[in-house]
């Protein structure tokens, strides 16, 4: 049976993980490869590495990091951040990434999704969407949630699917960092309307939140950062818990 996926997300700046961790058994908690390998050993199903470096030099550092990740980690990983054009995608896939996630660049230039799908296949293209609930509905935002756009979540998600995205990574900005659970109503609507997998992001604070997003939110995968980095929810414990509820999980 196809398993629901648990995906830790690592923010990277200048080749180092940004958020602190309290893993005492790591030689170097700032090394994304070390941390990624630890998560892989703990049973993470995939990893996401988000480059939040702005500079050109930093981008080169990130590409070198992607090569090290590919050489050392034996589960699939997605990279995102700083992808503006097909050339960036090509560079990261050549370095060994399995998938790329595109966010702001795809909203500004939706054809980027078509180009990625056409050149490398839908399976490598993750459309990441940051949205916030407004009086008029769920509105998409750019640049990590600072700039509102004229696109609404559901119509943009449909368009991304039609253009060839292989997955949707939906982050609710209302839920992100609050640790009160995922945006399950919006997730369920996305999952029920679209025919590609949906990754839930933003809001994980307890094991029950993962249960809810899989059962009520119909999510195919759940992504989280701080609850894993700070050891608040150990992945093996989370997976045992979900498995005990008969949710299909890889143990």
């Amino acid at each position: 049976m196809l398993a629901k996926r648990i995906i830790p997300c690592l923010d990277i700046r200048d080749g180092r993980t940004v958020k602190g961790t309290n893993f005492v058994n790591l030689r170097d908690a700032g090394d994304p490869v070390e941390l990624g390998r630890l998560y892989s050993e703990q049973g993470a199903d995939e990893l996401v590495f988000l480059d939040i470096t702005a500079s050109f030099e930093g981008r080169k550092t990130f590409t070198e990091l992607v090569e090290r990740i590919a050489a050392n980690i034996s589960i699939p990983f997605t990279v995102g951040g700083g992808i503006h054009e097909l050339k960036d995608v090509e560079r990261l896939l050549s370095a060994g990434a399995d998938k790329v996630s595109v966010n702001s660049a795809a909203i500004k230039n939706p054809d980027l999704i078509n180009q990625i799908a056409l050149n490398f296949g839908s399976q490598v293209c993750v459309a990441a969407i940051d949205a916030k609930q407004m009086p008029e509905g769920w509105r998409c935002f750019l640049n990590g949630g600072r700039v509102p756009t004229d696109r609404m979540l559901f119509e943009w998600a449909h368009e991304a699917e039609d253009r060839g995205a292989g997955e949707i990574l939906f982050t609710s900005m209302d839920h992100d960092g609050v640790k009160q659970g995922f945006a399950n109503d919006a997730l369920r609507k996305l999952s029920d309307e679209l025919t590609i997998p949906i990754i839930a992001s933003g809001g994980a604070g307890a094991k029950e939140h993962f249960r809810d997003t899989f059962i009520e939110g119909h999510a195919d995968a759940a992504l989280a950062a701080s609850v894993f980095h700070f050891g608040e929810i150990p992945i093996p414990e989370l997976k045992q818990y979900l498995c005990g509820l008969n949710i299909p999980i890889r143990i």
Binding site: M1, L2, S122, D192, P197, D220
Partner: peptide
């Protein structure tokens, strides 16, 4: 696909 939950591609971990 036979029903809506049958998403294609088949993506992820299976036994």
């Amino acid at each position: 696909p036979q029903k809506h939950q049958d998403k294609v591609p088949h993506m992820g971990w299976n036994t």
